[in-house]
Structure formats: C-alpha cells, structure tokens
C-alpha cells in the first residue's frame, strides 16, 4: 500500500489498546545501530519521513513509529506516546543500542524516551523540539484553535504561515504551496488531543537525564517551535552539539535533503564534533 521504500517491513502492534503501525527497512546487519524515527503532530512516517526514511535505509536499519490514539478520551500524555515507541523498539530491536530521531512533538517524545532508556539510546537527534511550552506557543495555539472550528479557510492559511519559513513562502505560488505538504494525518479527535498535549509539555527533568550523544537541530525561521527552544535543548543536554538550518518548522518539506544529510553524517560518526560544538551549516 505504501510507496515509502522498495523493501519494507511493516506491522501493527497493540499498545494499551492503541493500534500502532510501524515500518522498518535497510540492512539488519551493519556497523550502525538502528535508528528509530518519531514524527510530529499531524504527521506519520509517510507524512514526515517520506524522504528521510528511505534514504537512511540505504545506509542502515531504520525503524519508524506511527503514533496512534490510546482508547478513550483521557488527556494524552508524553508517557502514552513514549510507551508506543518503547513497544516498537522492543519488538524490532529488542537488544543492543539504538539511535532515536524525533521531529517536533516527536522530538519531545524522543527526548523523554532517551532519558528513561539511557541504557539503550546511544545517539539522539532532536529536530525542532522543545522542553517547556511557552507563552508565544500558547498564544499561537489559542489562535489556531479558535480558527479551526470557526473559520477553516483562515485556519488553513494560518497553518501554512506558521509551518513554513518566511523566505520559503515568499518564493512560492499558491499552487505550489497546495502540493508541498500532504494533509495532516490522524482523526480530528486525535489531532485535538495532540494539540492539547502540545500546550502542556514540560520535560525539563527528563532532558537533564539524557546521556546519549545528541544532535540538536534548530530551524532559523521557525515560528511554531522557535529556535530558542532548540538552543535550550543544546544547553540542557550534556553531550549535545547544535546545527541550525535555514528553514521554517516544516524542515521535512522545505529542506528534506539537508535534514537527511545532517542526520546521516551525524549517525555515521556521532562524536566527530565534541559536546558543545555549534556545527556550521554546509556552505555549498
């Protein structure tokens, strides 16, 4: 069904009543630990990693998790999502070290998972992630929430305005923007629960406990999770290095190749840059 990669393993597992789809591809034997990809709000493996997943699978084992709603209407927690990741990792890479990459809310989940599984997570990539939701984000979410129900056309336009970087939007036509990203994945109910979770993030204690070799990637033009959040992660995580890319929050659509190669380069030799390094972006 999916056109994600040419040779693909996939399945669905039950995690506390949630049906969690997972994908895996790439050689199982190789020098690099498998990397686990965790998408962001409104995403999925196909939605956020249609470039990164198949291309990383050319050089190493890649596993991904499609986060799913737990049954009922209870307030969603980071822990709920983290358990889904843990279940897929335990199934697909039951022993040995892993690398974990999270994007946006997926970075929050990845950071928390890495803190709680320091024995497993050797390398960590946090793309446009954050530690604590702040007032700028709450204000943005308030407006989004009001428009979502009241004015769907304005909501869609605001979403583009927030997701993509100013320079990216400036150079594209409305027609081009219509095809640049797939529509969000997930039912309206699940998206609403994720939106609510986004308002309540506070993983300061977890982040302090991360021991993995970490790459923090911030986006210069990000309005949804502005770069100061990535800088905060860079400061908070002991063995972190920082790379900033010229993109809005929608890095996976604006600069997928640059993201992929930054990750591939890091995973091939995580400690090439010592902790504390600000890695310069490639200057072609």
């Amino acid at each position: 069904m999916t056109a994600l990669a040419r040779e693909l393993d996939q399945g669905v597992i039950d995690v506390g009543g949630a049906s969690v789809r997972w994908f895996a591809a790439g050689a199982t034997s190789g020098p690099l630990p498998p990397v686990v990809l965790i998408h962001g709000t409104g995403g999925s493996t196909e939605g956020h990693f249609s470039f990164v997943f198949p291309m990383l699978a050319r050089t190493q084992r890649v596993i991904s998790v499609d986060l799913a709603p737990p049954p009922g209407n209870a307030e969603l927690t980071v822990d709920d999502l983290e358990r889904q990741v843990a279940a897929v990792v335990d199934r697909e890479a039951p022993t040995g070290p892993v690398s974990v990459l999270g994007y946006s809310l997926g970075a929050v989940v990845a950071a928390s998972y890495a803190a709680h599984h320091a024995d497993r997570v050797q390398n960590l990539v946090l793309v446009a992630g954050w530690i604590t939701t702040d007032t700028q984000q709450l204000l943005r979410q308030d407006v989004q929430q009001q428009l979502r129900g009241g004015d769907p056309v304005a909501f869609k336009k605001l979403s583009l305005l927030l997701a993509f970087g100013v320079p990216f939007l400036a150079k594209r036509s409305f027609d081009e923007l219509a095809t640049v990203a797939p529509p969000p994945s997930g039912t309206p109910e699940f998206l609403a629960r994720l939106a609510s979770l986004n308002r309540r993030i506070d993983i300061a204690d977890e982040v302090a406990a991360i021991r993995a070799v970490t790459l923090v990637i911030g986006c210069t033009h990000d309005l949804m999770v502005p770069r100061h959040h990535s800088l905060a992660l860079f400061g908070a995580i002991e063995d972190a290095r920082y790379l900033e890319l010229s993109s809005g929050h929608a890095l996976v659509f604006e600069r997928p190749a640059e993201l992929h190669l930054a990750v591939r380069t890091f995973l091939s030799q995580p400690s090439r840059h010592p902790a504390g390094t600000v890695i310069p972006a490639e200057q072609p």
């Binding site: 040419r6 196909e46 249609s50 470039f51 050319r58 997928p256 640059e258």
Partner: peptide, 13 residues
C-alpha cells in the same frame, strides 16, 4: 539535492 532519491528509485519520489 532533493531530486536525488528519485535516481535510486525511492518509489513515491
């Protein structure tokens, strides 16, 4: 660079 994956036949791209 974004056009490379199609050369190695990533199906969707």
């Amino acid at each position: 660079e974004g056009n490379f994956p199609a050369r190695v036949r990533v199906p969707a791209l």
